[in-house]
Every structure is written in structure tokens, then in C-alpha cells.
Design a protein around this nucleic acid. Structure first.
Ligand SMILES: [Mn+2]
Ligand SMILES: [Mn+2]
Ligand SMILES: [Zn+2]
Ligand SMILES: [Zn+2]
Lengths: 144, 144
DNA sequence: AATAGTAATGATAATAAATATCATGGAAAG
DNA sequence: CTTTCCATGATATTTATTATCATTACTATT
């Protein structure tokens, strides 16, 4: 698993530095959809001298090669997803946690639209309140 | 049409200032999904002394009352939508133009997921290349 | 009309995410 | 060993967004 993403990383013409390995290890199999800061904080624990710039550089390198997805689902910050297989997401309006929805949905767009716009893919975001937040109560449902 | 959104604006307990009228008039029926800066620039033409803060204040007031939607579809900036009826969007990966998709899709989420997450709504973003950009050619398809 | 209370404006400052610069260091190639 | 190249990390910059706050413009009351 880790070998795969690391092999792909190397084969794609990028150097496998210790910092990058740490980032890749944190991302591999991670379904928490972390932000750049999340990644920075976790990698920093085992690699205290790492720079924020390296995190951003690595994420950009991965994104450009299609090895991770950059999600715009959170209004506050970009979130990253090592799962590049087409799937959808739930986002909690209160705590902003993002959960995978590994289902295929049929979303047929009529030909007249397709004629005016080449559709390359789609992404469904479901928004609501997660279990944890519902337990904790409160009435603020977040923005939208 | 304009009367409606303005009436609703007043009835909701907000004052109808000239700046706000200008913003509302620009937004009403607007399907371009403008950013705050877009709105600022256009309103500024007829109202040169308007402040960016007033644009943001007004947008926030409208959003809080549910009179506009704040879209996170563009990785670079928030986009605003005066059409609050549930609908979906196409976004062009090259020019970032956003187009409405006024179709209803059935996206049934299984009960086991619904049990762990209270789903309040959904939004489908289709991504691809718009007609204009396809004409202009080029090979860069944008990020994702 | 004067007053007092309230809310919006706009100038400006502050915050925070993301990107850009660049000197230094280290791996890899020759 | 020497040169080349790339990544790192410190730092600066950019950009979007939010926060502050004094001034101004209404609104309601007397
Ligand atoms: Mn995911
Ligand atoms: Mn729309
Ligand atoms: Zn939550
Ligand atoms: Zn386009």
C-alpha cells in the first residue's frame, strides 16, 4: 500500500526525501481529508524541523501528478484526499468533518447541456450534521 | 422581481440603503455567480465611493437570512448565488465560469449512512470545459 | 425641531491561507 | 571529485476575508 504510492511517487520523477515519505505515510489510507495545516502538525511531531513550504510543495507536486485530490468542500481551507477514485462526500456543517460516500450515482445531464459544456466529472457534496455533533446538541447548524 | 427581493430584505429587518439597493439590483436575476470582488467592481461603477466592507457586510447579512447562497465551488474565492432554489452547477476548469444546472437528481443515500449523519441537502458540481474555452483551444485543462 | 437611540458605511487594520523567493545543502550523474 | 540539479526551509509576499471603529444617516420620541 505505502510501497505503491511511494513507488508511483518515485517513478513519476520526484525524489523520495524523508519529509516526503513522512507526508506520504500520513496521507496513505487517511480518510480524514486533512488540511495543509493538519498535515503539517502531524508530520511535525516526528519531523520537528519540517517547513510549511515543504508541505505545500509536496501537496502541489502530488496534485499536479494526480496522486491526490484537492477538495474545495470546506469554505475555510483546502482539504486533501489521497483517495483518487471517484467518490463523494458528506460534510458536517458544524465541525467541518468530511466523510466519504463510496457510492455510484447516476446523474444524467441532457445532451443540450453536454453540447455546450464538456463534462469531465462530477462530485456530490452532502451537507448535514454528523453523529458526534448531534450528540453534543446545540442549535447552530452552521452556515449552509 | 427586484421588488420581491427588496421587500424581503426590508421585511427581514434590514435597512434598504442605496448601497444595498445597488448590490441587490446587481445580484437580482444574476446567474454569473459573482465573487465579492466582481460585485464590488460592478457596483462601484455607479457608486464610486462604496467600500469593500459594505459589500462583505451586505453579503453576510443576505447569507445569514438565507437570501443568497455562498458557493465553495471555486478554489480561489467564494462565489455568491442569488438563486436559492436547490440546483446544481457546472464549473469550467479553465476559466472558472459557473453555470446553473436546473435539474433534479435522485441521489439515494443508504439508511446506514443516514443513521450516522443527518443529511440536510446536497449539491452536485460538474466540472469540465465550457464552450468558449473549448473554442479557444489550448491544452491546459486546469487543475481538477 | 431637537434629542436620543440605532444601525450602516467606509477607512483601515488584522488575520489567515496560500504562494513566491532564494540561499543553502545534499543526492545523483558524469 | 566536480558539476548539476533538485528539495528544503526560512522568510517575504500576495490575496481573500474578517474585525475595529469613528463618522454618518436614519428612526422614533418628545
Ligand atoms: Mn474522500
Ligand atoms: Mn446557481
Ligand atoms: Zn460534526
Ligand atoms: Zn471556460
Amino acid at each position: 500500500m505505502i510501497i505503491n504510492i511511494m513507488e508511483r511517487f518515485k517513478n513519476i520523477g520526484l525524489k523520495l526525501t524523508p519529509q516526503r515519505v513522512a507526508i506520504l505515510e500520513y496521507l496513505d489510507g487517511n480518510t480524514s481529508h486533512p488540511s495543509a495545516e493538519d498535515i503539517y502538525r502531524h508530520v511535525k511531531e516526528r519531523f520537528p524541523m519540517i517547513s510549511f513550504a515543504t508541505v505545500y510543495n509536496t501537496l502541489e507536486a502530488l496534485r499536479k501528478r494526480g496522486l491526490i485530490l484537492e477538495l474545495t468542500i470546506d469554505p475555510d481551507r483546502k482539504r486533501y484526499d489521497p483517495n483518487i477514485h471517484p467518490h463523494h462526500h458528506l460534510i458536517c456543517l458544524r465541525c467541518k468533518s468530511v466523510v466519504d460516500v463510496n457510492l455510484e450515482f447516476d446523474v444524467p445531464v441532457p445532451d443540450d447541456v453536454r453540447g455546450r459544456f464538456e463534462i469531465l466529472g462530477n462530485h456530490i457534496e452532502f451537507y448535514g450534521i454528523c453523529e458526534q455533533c448531534k450528540k453534543e446538541g446545540g442549535d447552530d447548524n452552521g452556515s449552509l
